[in-house]
């Protein structure tokens, strides 16, 4: 690489050296860059937050005002939230929780041993198994939906969320992949020490390795929870109106409520709120999980 003679520091690199002793021009330029980058970041941040803000402001407007295009509510209708949080919404909420909680628990129980085996056992076909995990993770669910629907219909489980929850008892490819990626980074010595102490493989996994893998477990559980919470396609295929989760219910909300945008936005906001809260509480696990792999979410 042939490099040039300009004498400029990267804004991000070399943090240790202070600006002291720099020529004036360079300091001014650095200030300009500092100002520029932060200005861009702030502008972008406003744009990123604007839709959520608009949602909120619309959610507390009166029905007539939502059609006016006004930005700021002239009167604050907090009752809108109470109005939507009844009847259908509560049932949808219950269904969403059932799907997400059970789904997450089932996924953890079934995926952890598989990921552990793929990460720590040496056996013939291990590479093939791992490739199959990645394949199953990447291929769209639509490919197998028709025969699966037929099977579930045969068990008379269509019309419920069970066709989406039960398969999670048999491992989720994405979670297996992500957990395995984390487990291979745990030094072998820990497990070996446990084994010397006479622990069986299962005990070693539960007592020694899993506590160390807690961040990865948290990330995987969060992803699964949000996947179920957000899932629209699955419930659309399988669920009936009385087993609809929030995602499907919200999509029909507007038509059912005669296009009352304020109520629609209030309901929508209520589906977003738990996600935001969990994210703020568990931010680190999230970022860690995403960076661990960078697929699906």
């Amino acid at each position: 690489m042939s490099l040039l003679t300009a004498d400029r520091r990267a804004a991000g690199a070399g943090r240790a050296k202070g600006p002291a002793g720099r020529p004036r021009a360079a300091t001014g330029r650095r200030a300009l860059i500092w100002f520029g980058t932060h200005a861009v970041a702030i502008a972008l941040a406003i744009m990123f937050m604007a839709p959520l803000l608009f949602m909120f402001l619309t959610a507390v407007m009166s029905d007539e005002q939502t059609l006016s295009g006004d930005l700021w509510p002239t009167s604050w209708h907090w009752g809108n939230f109470a109005e939507v949080l009844s009847g259908d919404m509560l049932r949808w909420l219950g269904n969403s929780l059932l799907y997400a909680v059970l789904g997450t628990v089932f996924m953890l129980v079934s995926s952890v041993p598989v990921a552990y085996a793929l990460a720590r056992f040496r056996f013939r076909g291990r590479k093939v198994a791992f490739v199959l995990v990645i394949t199953a993770m990447m291929l769209p669910p639509q490919i197998t939906v028709v025969p699966l629907y037929i099977v579930w219909a045969r068990f008379e489980l269509t019309g419920t969320l069970w066709p989406l929850i039960l398969p999670l008892l048999f491992g989720d490819a994405f979670s297996i992949f992500l957990l395995r990626q984390f487990l291979v980074t745990i030094p072998r010595d820990y497990a070996d020490a446990a084994r010397v102490d006479g622990c069986g493989e299962f005990t070693t996994m539960v007592r020694v390795i899993l506590p160390m893998a807690r961040p990865a477990l948290a990330a995987v559980a969060l992803f699964q929870f949000f996947f179920c919470w957000n899932d629209y396609y699955g419930p659309l295929v399988y669920a009936k109106p009385d087993s609809w989760p929030l995602a499907v219910g919200i999509a029909t909300f507007r038509a059912a409520h005669n296009v009352e945008w304020n109520l629609t936005m209030a309901a929508t906001l209520l589906t977003v709120l738990p996600v935001i809260i969990v994210f703020l509480l568990a931010q680190r696990a999230f970022v860690r999980g995403v960076t661990l792999t960078g697929v699906k979410g």
Partner: peptide, 24 residues
């Protein structure tokens, strides 16, 4: 954060926000 907003909710919000006549 916006990535975590449930896709259905995000879409409903976008349709409204960009809706001519009524959207902000």
């Amino acid at each position: 954060l916006p990535y975590l907003v449930p896709p259905v909710s995000a879409t409903v919000a976008f349709v409204f926000v960009l809706n001519p006549g009524t959207g902000p």
